[in-house]
Amino acid sequence: MFKYIEKLGDSALYALRDLGRMGVFLVQALAGIFSRPFRFMETVRQIREIGVNSFGVIAFTGGFTGMVLGLQGYYTLSKFGAKSALGSAVALSLIRELGPVLTALMVTGRAGSAMCAEIGIMRNSEQLDALECMAIDPFRFLITPKLLATLISVPILTLFFNLIGIAGGYLVGVGLLGVNPGAYASGIEQSVVNLDINLGIVKSFVFALLIVWICTGRGYFVHKIRGAGFGAEAVSRITTQAVVMASISVLLWDYLITAVML
C-alpha cells in the first residue's frame, strides 16, 4: 500500500519536473530569437524544410477535405432546401476548424517528427554537448530557427489549406452537383466575419508553437525521459511520443480556444 503511494508520488514529481524542464526549454527557445548572431540562412532553410516542402501534402489534404465538405454539406443542406448556403458551410468549417487543425496535424506528422528525431540523434551522439563546449548556444543555433520557421510556415500553410479547400468545395458543389456559382461565392462573403478569421489565425499560431515546442523539446531531452530507453530505440520512442503529444495538444487547445473566443 505504502509502496503504491510512494510510486504515485514519484511519478507526480517526475511529471512536474518534466513540465518544468519543458517550460524552461520554451523560454530559452524564445530568448534565442533575441540573441545574436541571428541565423538568418538557417531559418530560411528551415522554412523550406517545414513550410515549402509541406505545400504538396497540404494541397492534397486541403483539396480533398473541401471536396468532402462540399459533398456532405450538399446532402445535409438540401434536406432543408438550403443548398445556396453550401459556400458558407464549407468556408466556415474550414476557416474556423478544419484548416488550422488538419494543417497542424499534417505538419506534426511531416515536420514535427523529423525535428524531434534530428535533435534526439544530435543529443545521443554528443553533438549538442559539443556545441555547448564550443560556447555556441544550442537554442540560438538549432531550436530558434525551427521555432521561427514553424511560426511563419503554419499560418501560411493554413491559409493555403483554406483556399484550396474552398476551391475543392466549389468543384464538387458547383461543378458536380449544380449549386449556383454566385450563391456559393456570396454565401462565403456574407457569412465569414472577422471573428472567424481571427479565430483561425490565433489557432494556427498556437498550434505552431505547440508543435515546435513539444517536438524539439522531446528530442532535446531524450536522455532524460523516463522509460524511453537508450540510443536508437529511445529516439524512435520519443519521436512517436512527441507526435502523439503534439496531436493531442492541438486538439485540446482547439477546443479551449474555440470555447474562449466564440
Binding site: 544530435m122 551522439s125 554528443e126 553533438q127 554537448d129 559539443a130 556545441l131
Partner: peptide
Amino acid sequence: FQGAALLD
C-alpha cells in the same frame, strides 16, 4: 570528444 562529436 572521444567520439569526435562532429555535426553530422
